[in-house]
């Protein structure tokens, strides 16, 4: 049985997440198989694209309830993190509801381009967040998104682009990263190591 699995919710960054795990010595198969997901010690939900097609793909695979009931550590990445929350404005879709808050469009404004694309600083909200062990406060991570969670009640770390938003989310065994650890150099590698360790 594989220790770490990647849930196939579509999106084009799946390969990149898989390669990032290989770089830290972890082989994580991509799967939609309920038994394989349930048996894994760690589950990652990657995603690029939009909340609506990601939720639809999970529903078609019959994985919605299964993901809600997982007891092992679960990590959502980018859109994979967004769909852990209650609802997304993008496509106006109900999400998994494992984390409190809604996903909203970033407002942008003078000097604030949308999508929020590039390297931005991440600041810890919870000093003891296990995903951020060994990572300096204010380290740069790579973001690419137009939607974000502005309600900070599940925030273990935040980022700011005109508005403050959730960069790393946590509630119990459920966590998420709005940025792309697979493309965030040493910060990203350390976060993944912290997760699979």
């Amino acid at each position: 049985m594989s220790r770490v699995v990647l849930i196939d919710a579509g999106g084009s960054n799946i390969g990149s997440v898989q390669y990032a795990l290989q770089r830290i010595g972890v082989e994580a198969p991509l799967t939609r198989d309920a038994g394989q997901i349930r048996a894994a010690e760690r589950v990652i939900l990657p995603g690029v694209g939009a909340a609506m097609p990601a939720m639809q793909r999970l529903r078609e695979a019959g994985l919605i309830e299964l993901i809600r009931q997982l007891q092992q550590p679960l990590l959502g990445v980018c859109v994979g993190m967004q769909i852990l929350f209650e609802r997304s404005e993008e496509g106006d879709v109900d999400c998994l509801g494992l984390l409190p808050g809604r996903v909203q469009k970033l407002a942008g404004g003078e000097g604030l381009r949308i999508p929020h694309m590039g390297w931005n600083r991440v600041f810890k909200q919870q000093a003891d967040e296990p995903l951020l062990v060994g990572i300096e406060d204010g380290a740069h991570a790579y973001f690419v998104h137009s939607y974000a969670v502005l309600d900070l009640s599940a925030a273990a770390a935040i980022c700011e682009h005109g508005q403050r938003f959730v960069a790393v989310a946590r509630r119990g065994n459920v966590a998420g990263a709005q940025f792309h650890p697979e493309r965030s150099a040493t910060f990203g590698a350390r976060l993944l190591e912290n997760f699979v360790r």
Binding site: S12, G15, S16, A20, V144
Partner: peptide
């Protein structure tokens, strides 16, 4: 597989299918 920063691929992409091949191969 080897780099951990984002990268973009340009040149000769003229369809959704061609773009998908490049993105699925790991381009951001």
């Amino acid at each position: 597989r080897i780099i951990d920063i984002p990268f973009c691929v340009a040149g000769g992409i003229r369809s959704v299918d061609a773009a998908r091949r490049v993105l699925n191969a790991g381009a951001d």
